[in-house]
């Protein structure tokens, strides 16, 4: 059996994220009172403590804040694919999101590189948000 990527176990607090990505939409929590976006999912706004929020679609655009190139040792499923570029993306909405950066070699990645989200199917149940350099 070939090794598989460890799969998320959604909870009531974040299942909307995973349902959205499966439909091809990148949605994050947004406070209904102060309009601030947030990630990771939380039951309350860390700014105004409101418990009212919606799952709104984000632009998917952002810039590389920092990154690493995974070369291993790591889990066998990732070891097969190294070098793997994983980045922290500062989204235009002001929220940080960590994800694999596709279509970009370790030599090409740099701070502030503009990137855009690309939804990538993991299996029948889960779709991950990954990124690639913008305008390609």
């Amino acid at each position: 059996m070939s090794p598989s990527v460890p799969r998320p176990l959604p909870t009531h607090d974040d299942v909307e994220f995973w349902e959205a990505t499966r439909r091809g939409e990148f949605r994050l929590q947004r406070c209904s009172d102060c309009s601030r976006w947030r990630h990771y999912p939380r039951p309350a706004c860390p700014d105004c403590y409101s418990r009212e929020y919606s799952w709104d679609e984000v632009s998917g655009r952002g810039r590389i804040y920092t990154w690493t190139v995974v070369r291993g040792p790591t889990l066998p499923v990732f070891q097969e694919r190294v070098p793997l570029v994983v980045a922290d993306v500062l989204l235009d909405e002001g929220v940080h999101f960590q994800a694999e950066l596709l279509d970009c070699t370790p030599e090409e990645v740099r701070a502030d590189l503009p990137v855009e989200a690309t939804l990538t199917e993991l299996d029948d149940e889960f779709t991950l948000v990954k990124f690639r350099p913008a305008n390609r």
């Binding site: 990527v5 460890p6 799969r7 974040d14 995974v70 994983v86």
Partner: peptide, 16 residues
């Protein structure tokens, strides 16, 4: 299957 709630945002992306 990841039991750790925070792990689900990182590990499937290769941040292990």
């Amino acid at each position: 299957d990841l039991p750790d709630v925070s792990g689900m945002w990182h590990v499937p992306q290769g941040l292990v």
